[in-house]
Design a protein around this nucleic acid. Structure first.
Lengths: 99, 99
DNA sequence: TCCATTTACTTTGAATTCCAAAGTATAATA
DNA sequence: TATTATACTTTGGAATTCAAAGTAAATGGA
């Protein structure tokens, strides 16, 4: 049990960050607007949680121009993908243990 | 996506509480000492997180005597079992979406 | 029979985390 | 050229975390 619990990644113990990573495992790139509508959260919540993931080097944040407007593009790093898969693997073990 | 994220239960977004519930889905009753060693956490951490689950009516906390010593016994309530299964179901959807 | 230690927890509070309101900067519109 | 909209980021009060300190009863040794 403790071995499974210790595999739980503190960074992903938050549904917004779980959602961001989830979305970035399926989509190579997503912009701010799309991610916000996908997760149905406030701007501040998305921005600050994305910053946490970036600081951990789990995602990359790039800014580009779409016409004259800025657009912030998110993508998962390899380290982020590996860490997230490990986290999901721990959750899977818990689920399998119960069902 | 937002429908899955909204099914994530805030109470279970914590590995200690995830561990407690996990243990109580498999074992009808567990005492303090056993749960503590199972999860490998401090007394305070177990006690305060168990209180959170009790306040939410997800677990029952009963005190009995074993010889002259008190023993605290934990068990999941029906509401707790249902809520936890719903939470795991949301996690399962995320996992399935990725793999 | 003191009292020191152990057992079995609970409470406290400093540190950390959360997240929406407020702030910033540029663009579009009237 | 105001005013409003777009696209975020920062801030700080509120909520949460978790281990140290506290409590209460039992046990062990001198």
């Amino acid at each position: 049990m403790k071995d499974i619990i210790s595999q739980i990644n503190k960074i992903f113990e938050n549904k917004v960050r779980l959602g961001i990573m989830s979305a970035l495992m399926v989509n190579e790139k997503i912009d701010f607007k799309e991610l916000k509508s996908l997760l149905d959260i406030t701007d501040g919540n998305l921005s600050s949680n994305a910053s946490v993931l970036e600081k951990e080097k789990y995602i990359k944040i790039k800014k580009k121009f779409v016409g004259k407007k800025t657009s912030t593009i998110y993508s998962a790093t390899d380290a982020g993908k590996i860490a997230f898969k490990e986290h999901l693997s721990a959750l899977e073990k818990i689920i399998r243990n119960i069902q």
